[in-house]
Nucleic acid binder design. Sequence first.
DNA 1: TTAAAGCATACTAAATTAGTAGGATATCGG
DNA 2: CCGATATCCTACTAATTTAGTATGCTTTAA
Lengths: 129, 129
Amino acid sequence: MKFSSKAEYGLKAMVNLAKDETRTKNIKLIAKEETISVKYLERLLNDLRKYDLVESFKGANGGYALKRPAKKISVADVVIALEGPIAPMKCVGKTCRMEHQCSSKIVWQILGTQIEKTLSHIKLSDLTK
Amino acid sequence: MKFSSKAEYGLKAMVNLAKDETRTKNIKLIAKEETISVKYLERLLNDLRKYDLVESFKGANGGYALKRPAKKISVADVVIALEGPIAPMKCVGKTCRMEHQCSSKIVWQILGTQIEKTLSHIKLSDLTK
DNA sequence: TTAAAGCATACTAAATTAGTAGGATATCGG
DNA sequence: CCGATATCCTACTAATTTAGTATGCTTTAA
Ligand code: FES
Ligand code: FES
């Protein structure tokens, strides 16, 4: 069970932005500081923008900034923006779609809720120190 | 973020065994009941055996049985046996191995602990109904 | 002694994730 | 208005992981 490196990279970038909330910062600089491929980070920030977690400014002296205060953005927000809804099992059996419940479905439901709760409690501002 | 179908299949098989704890049951039967490839399940049960979660009997009328009472086997036990230790991020940055902490490491540590705790509280006996 | 079961290893196929390429579009500063 | 700078968009490729298969050996109860 793993989160993808999208989550790791995206979170690092967001924490990086959170460290100087008031300024905009361009991709190249973030990528360099966090050792991430520029082109890959470009796409991740794009996803984050579509989820209204960052704001972008084009043109000279452009870049990115958090759209909300770091205190109001959680790790869950970031992870969901990049990887989609938190659901720790893709259903493999036909039972899931049928009237019969599969015996383990309840486990993944409980766990998913738990994970989301945990990640919702951690805000970017908790990670800037 | 997903657990693999190993976890799903393995858990289903274990719950299946837990439903009639006293009997041994052969792979073919379990595979049929849970709609899993026989050969694939063979390997999963082998992993579970190496983790001392099931016991196997060779020869005619052989099969598998839980090695401990269903009340004493948790979902965490099964998942760890099949997928290895619960660690929701493989470290991607060099920072992780260095003296510098990466800003998000703490998140995955907290989360990993939380997941393991949640899964440890759910026993096979909770899933047999 | 033989058929029924598990055990072990190696291989292949499918799916997902990570990363790249190349250009289109917008905008600030002069 | 021009051009440099930076984001935006789509499609492709490479790498890795996961899922599943094939083949044959070993053990053991009947
Ligand atoms: S088949 Fe969907 S959770 Fe079991
Ligand atoms: S680099 Fe290992 S958790 Fe961030």
